[in-house]
Write a protein that binds this DNA or RNA. Sequence first.
DNA 1: AATATAATGTAACAATTGTTACAGAGTAAA
DNA 2: TTTACTCTGTAACAATTGTTACATTATATT
Lengths: 211, 211
Amino acid sequence: MDIKVLVKANFSSLFEKALLDEVSIVAQLKEVKKNDYLIDIGQEMTFIPLIITGAINVFRTDDDGDDYILYFIEGGDTCAMTLNCCMKGAKSEIKAIAERDSELLLIPVHKLEDWLHYKSWRAFVFGSYNNRFVEMLEAVDSLAFMNMNDRILKYLKNKVIANKSEFLKITHNTISLELNTSRVVVSRILKKLEIDGNIKLHRNQIEILDF
Amino acid sequence: MDIKVLVKANFSSLFEKALLDEVSIVAQLKEVKKNDYLIDIGQEMTFIPLIITGAINVFRTDDDGDDYILYFIEGGDTCAMTLNCCMKGAKSEIKAIAERDSELLLIPVHKLEDWLHYKSWRAFVFGSYNNRFVEMLEAVDSLAFMNMNDRILKYLKNKVIANKSEFLKITHNTISLELNTSRVVVSRILKKLEIDGNIKLHRNQIEILDF
DNA sequence: AATATAATGTAACAATTGTTACAGAGTAAA
DNA sequence: TTTACTCTGTAACAATTGTTACATTATATT
């Protein structure tokens, strides 16, 4: 599909006319498959990604290679941007992986500054920063204030939003890796959630009931 | 002291000449005492605070009023700004309390956008966002990947930086409140850290040895 | 169909963190 | 000085989370 049409269809409510034209000129379409890497820790950001369709998971990784999921960004939310890209030459502090097949537009990072004279771009950029900040706070909330039972339930509900489906194709092991706990702990708690009527367990699939 | 002198002394390496003048005109000096509130959750941000001296702690609070310390911002670091202020009318997601007597300059929030044509201001703003983001990631790192022993040690080392002293005037109870754990847990681990030779305990004071 | 692999269930136990209770030491106030 | 209060130490126990081990079931591969 033509980039110009894509941009207009997805961003005309966000960006002013002149900016839409500029975006159309420089944006590059990228299609990624589920579980594709978009960026890893230590890599340099050269593009600002604007999500068109799909959902992208953002993870933090420690020295041992253990992961923790921070948040996901999606197209419906439109206002999507991984941070850090603003500092020229800055290395990524996070890794990003497609939750499902997704389409994004890539904008060269230097446009971040170039376009600041557009009011709608400033609103977008600062709005995105703000959304990311709020999502980081929610990640802290989960870790600092919630027990594993509630954290897993919250995680599953986020997955429902990211996948637009109450039928999650996911294994207990994957959940344990994304929440940095063990598979046995996850299985134990999922079973409890099933008994409590929150979810229904199947092989390779979890159905969320009380959404 | 004259604002103009203060601005020049603290920001001449960061801001270009014309911006220094602008800052001097609109900045308001605010002096706060240790433990003074700067902003609470739900309050509206009307000023961008620039730290001159001292240190400010930033906390997240849950519905039950439990706190968790996210990070501190200090004058030495100069690049200091609480986020969220960018969105007009946005409510604060965090609370900020002075770690010690501090001086700050208050800039009306709308200047954030007004001054974006200054290259040095853009660098400052995006640099600050980036610093805040990195500090949030460190908070997540602690919670997701570290045990209580290491989290307390890291907390104490941050306090040393914030207070520019290895002799911390702090009680076990205060630590437990800022890390959302219990006083008994803190006392137990502090005793272990003392036995391990990391710290030395006194009444109302902890000395950090291996800094 | 037989075999291998991946996913899940569960028991038993270990480690970590949280809670309750109380004692003693230091400090401040009366 | 006596009293009250805050801070710290510590034991005993509870709750949560993590680990090891192994069985069972479903799916994929040969």
